[in-house]
Design a binder for these strands. Structure first.
Lengths: 199, 199
DNA sequence: CGTCCATCTTACTCAGAGTAGGTTACTACC
DNA sequence: GGTAGTAACCTACTCTGAGTAAGATGGACG
């Protein structure tokens, strides 16, 4: 519907349009249930075009995932630049993440759901997204924390990523929880630990 | 290969055999790449039999997931029964979990990977597994912690489940990390928080 | 106004999920 | 032992959707 006159479009533009539509359809129907014919029709083009540009259904999915990932990276990296303390950096990063998952539901849906392609390139691609976030956090921590034990630091970063991913999914079921609240809940456990709350 | 004489087997036994084989194949090839024909052949039976017993490919997957989940529940619940303190209960539960994911790789692989069926019963089924573990942890915490804020407690439980799930996946890449070490890493962040380690 | 090439299409193949309808071996009871 | 009943099982299909071969078409530039 952003279209001009529905015909003969330069490669780059058509490609962006396809990714846009595919992201929508994949996140609505899910990867398995989405059909290439449907996507092609919505784009206003015939199926072989999709294969011309992306080679396979999975290739198209990959393009969508990469797109979403680069946005996520951009957003979270930017968020932490002005932070003064470790606590502040962590909090800003978390907030940016929770805002992202609220505002870009389709993108987030891809990143969280489409991991069933074990053994295929797409699985690696989703893992790659997590690694991106893990590295970012590991970098943050290595700047602010005593290291000594690299393995432990890596584990802690993985831990944070997993925890936030799950908390984000939980937020989908709880509209009353704002990104700010989610951030606060996360910081509470992460920063202070559970010990403080024990009877 | 556990077989007797490859013929006419009572319903319940055949069913267990099918689930066993399917769990293997699904976790090796992944849900999408696994074919019903292959599973049928490995079981030593024709395809319509699988449909007779499980209705659909997804039904078969569901049976596998349910089986794995009940084992996970059994293991983690049992682990926490003799605990004296909150810290101890948490530690025992975590250890049981990390042992499970090491010893039952196929089962764990199903539980972690086969969530791409968004909008289908199988997705709910995997979510249900997480809810099971979340409830267990929430129950643990409500026993030991000051409540007051239910939403916050729920968030904390989700947080723990997600963190451990991710840490478990990380362990797959690090054979040198034993269940005991994983538990210790998890407890370290969870219990004491990151604050303690900040410079 | 023709020629070249990138964009696009029609019309297929093929694998794998799911099914209709018939067949065989075990059980029970005479 | 025979035979009726049924649970376990099979052969041989249909149908949907991923992926492809081969050709048609619009437009830029001489």
């Amino acid at each position: 519907m952003t279209t001009a006159k529905r015909k003969r479009m330069p490669r780059a533009e058509r490609m962006r349009q396809m990714v846009e539509v595919a992201e929508q359809v994949f996140s609505e129907r899910g990867y398995a249930a989405a059909s290439m014919d449907e996507i092609a029709e919505l784009v206003g083009v015939s199926k072989p075009m999709l294969y011309e540009y992306f080679n396979s259904k999975e290739g198209l999915l990959l393009a969508c995932i990469r797109e979403s990932r680069s946005v996520l990276r951009e957003v979270t990296e930017q968020a932490t630049v002005g932070a003064a303390t470790a606590e502040d950096a962590l909090r800003r990063g978390l907030l940016a993440f929770f805002v992202f998952i609220r505002d870009r539901r389709e993108a987030w849906s891809l990143l969280r759901h489409e991991m069933a392609l074990i053994g295929t390139p797409a699985a690696d691609e989703v893992e790659e997204t997590r690694r991106q976030q893990t590295d970012l956090i590991a970098a943050l921590m290595s700047g602010y924390f005593d290291s000594g034990d690299d393995l432990r630091a890596e584990a802690a970063a993985e831990f944070v990523v997993g925890a936030c991913e799950r908390l984000a999914i939980w937020c989908e079921r709880h509209d009353e929880v704002s990104p700010g609240m989610a951030t606060e809940y996360a910081m509470d456990v992460l920063w202070s630990g559970l010990q403080r709350r024990a009877r």
